[in-house]
Design a protein around this nucleic acid. Sequence first.
DNA 1: TGCCCTGGCGC
DNA 2: GTACGTGCCAGGGCA
Length: 554
Amino acid sequence: MTLPRPAKKGEMVALDLEMFGQDVKRLHRPHGTFACLSIAYSAEEHYQITDKADLPKALERLKSGMWIFHNALYDLRQLRGLCNTPPVSKVWDTMLVERAMFGGYYNDFSLAGLTRRWLHVYLSKEQQSEFGQAEHMTTEMAEYAIRDAISTLLIAQAQRHQLDESEDQLRSYWEVDEPAIWAFLDLQPVAIDADGWRKLAEENDATGVSIQLDLGFNVKSPKQTIEHVEKMTRVHLQDSTKLSLEQLALGMRSEGYDSAAEFIEKILEARSYRDASSKYGMKWLDEYVEEENLVYPDFKVSGTETSRTSCSSPNVQQIPVRKMPKFRELFVSRHPGGSIIIADQNQQELRFLAWFSGDTVLRKALLDGRDLHQEVADDFGLTRRKGKDINLGLGYGMSAAGLASRVGISIEAAEAGIRKRNARYPLAAIWSSNQKSRGAALGYVTSALGRRMWINPYLEQWERNAINSPIQSSAAEQTKIWLRLIFDEAKARDLPFAVTMLVHDELVADVPKGMVRQYAKLLKETGIESGKMVAPDMEFDVAVAYGPNWGAKA
DNA sequence: TGCCCTGGCGC
DNA sequence: GTACGTGCCAGGGCA
């Protein structure tokens, strides 16, 4: 078997790992058996390792090169499961680089998609499924694997060539996403109270079934729901498209139709229990909970066009917290007597709005710790709870129409509220307006670290994207730098890297007994430090809470 | 079975 | 009359 020649310092070398017998739904977990590692220096010079025993030697020879992967997290995780991988200083991830270059422009970031765009070749994925069943490689499978590695290499070269002319575009990749890969590889599993989960699942299931039985139809069927609600309320729902059942119930209640309102509220209640039991029931336990009751979510470094992280299998970024807080209480420490620490960035996105715009009124309000949700509630003439919804909605770039339907007010009232808010924070309003011109002129807007997000002028919402994307993207950059600082500092201070989950502006850590104060301090310090690295001269603030589970409150 | 749609959760 | 942030997930409905 031919081992690859040693890589020269910084030389680009693409690696592509294939495994036999993998479950496509669990690709982020090391499993299956080794099939081959394909290695490409160029379209002509490539190697293939098919004997697992050769892996350490082969990787050792590649050590000095810059490793190129398409989705490095997958290959590095599996490689770590197969052998001791030598430390590599930097990796070029064609998927993450492509997202950094074309966020907002493309939706397809698969290897096949990139191959089509960069190399003008249609990459068939037919052979890929073969690896699931097979135990031995055929010639076709070997060729398929080599072809993927060569493709990855050529794409990286093409990306680099294009970026040579505007190198600042890669700043966000090298300072945020690439370093984050190494921290993401070491994210810790999170422990579940499986008995408690089972009990709660059974209760939710029973409650959902019993309420639905009373109602006498399938509440999960929009068709049946419309039919029954129309019969009850004599309102034609298809005429008032997208009128939420919640709003309808409120309307019925205010006009004195109490029994109709109760009927609709019961539907919503049945739905929420049935949703909870199907999403977080026994199937969830069977599918995601591994030995020692540990769960290993699949976090993607950059899962959206603004480079926010996304999460799946299971998605722990969407575990209920408001209506059903019990689920979070079942995320517990894996350490005897250990603690879950929750650290979150206070008003993270509004701080970036203040920083970008230089709005001193907003900045002072943030520094003074004023109640901004109440202030916006006053602008709109609503309760504080709705004020918070509006601040969040505005943060996500929602339109007046979007806010109106979400909060349950008229579009005119939403527009009037937005005008009042603009008057309260005039420089923020001016900055927002400038972002629109900038986006329209350049075709893209940029994050604090220079990451581009392309504006699609054919989308109605492009103006709001031009305002919101830089803010959301900068916040995502900060959180990933925060994670990386903890990773580095934990190593420097000889502490374990204990972070288990990343929920946009929040990090969750699971620490052994006796380590809470030390780790809470680390979380807070790095959280503030990360802000300085993204938005110099802006003050940041981190709230820390801890307890035996994720339900802890400050 | 596979595909699209709807609804609902977090941020 | 129409406007309606995102990603992930489960179920309904239909070819």
